[in-house]
Nucleic acid binder design. Structure first.
Lengths: 138, 138
DNA sequence: TTATATTTGCAACAACGTTTCAATTAAATT
DNA sequence: AATTTAATTGAAACGTTGTTGCAAATATAA
């Protein structure tokens, strides 16, 4: 059994061709993927709508998370092991290189706790870093 | 001369009906606005495409800034005085209430500096807070 | 192997956003 | 105040993104 199959089962999802293929795409990638990144990797034979639904099911299952970025595009990345269905547990920052456009998780950087004005109850926080990555310097 | 006219001129923009109306909408609002929020406020007589261009010119002029949020919708808010054409200078956090959906700037909270892994050069950072606002508690 | 509940593919639809081009308008100049 | 010039606007057309409803296909439990 592939690691992808295993991951799907462990998170309570049925194993289907469509899901395995998308899962493999994430596992092969170091960076966060947009919808069109994924389509480029898995080819065109898979239905567009199915892909949206696959991503939704992965997100709900705690397999991937959405990453906000300053450009407001939607990107997804694999979750750490600590995520479970309906229970995402993310404390890490995200970084987008403005030269190559690649986005990735920065597990070394925790999102700091901040004290907010009275009355506001903060339940989650995201830290989005933008700049230039190792490969694009110079 | 209205404050809106003045703001437009000071940031090097021609004063037009379309721009004045949009600027007033921002000045009247405590919260960040989506495209459709703005359209609701200014009415339908203004062309949709013009609005996109107006927002783009405001952003370039340092009058408004885009706010990322976890839902990946695009929202805009007025900039602080310290912003100028081509030179946005934002250190504040943003907060979105998951109940009422309103987003606003939290000037009391600065985006903290973090030390990133070697090789990455960070040029800007966003801190996005999500939770429940004063009005939606209970 | 069969039953059933989930997943898929298709059609249709709606929202968002951009580009091109001609017409209009703001503001600088005379 | 009229003219000139450069910026702005509106309309049409287009592409991408994302959703919903329904019938057909398929994964899993029995």
């Amino acid at each position: 059994m592939t690691n992808s199959r295993k991951a799907l089962k462990e998170h309570g999802l049925r194993v289907t061709e469509a899901r395995e293929v998308v899962m493999e795409a994430f596992r092969d990638s170091e960076q966060a993927l947009t919808i069109s990144d994924i389509r480029d990797r898995i080819g065109d034979d898979q239905d567009r709508i199915t892909l949206y639904r696959t991503l939704k099911s992965f997100e709900e299952a705690g397999l991937i998370h959405r990453i906000p970025d300053e450009e407001h595009s939607v990107k997804y990345a694999l979750c750490p092991e600590s995520c479970h269905p309906g229970d995402h547990d993310h404390h890490h920052a995200h970084f987008t290189c403005k030269v190559c456009g690649k986005t990735r998780c920065i597990y070394e950087v925790f999102v700091p706790r901040v004290s907010t004005p009275q009355g506001i109850r903060v339940e989650s926080a995201e830290l989005i870093l933008t700049g230039v990555c190792e490969n694009c310097q110079g």
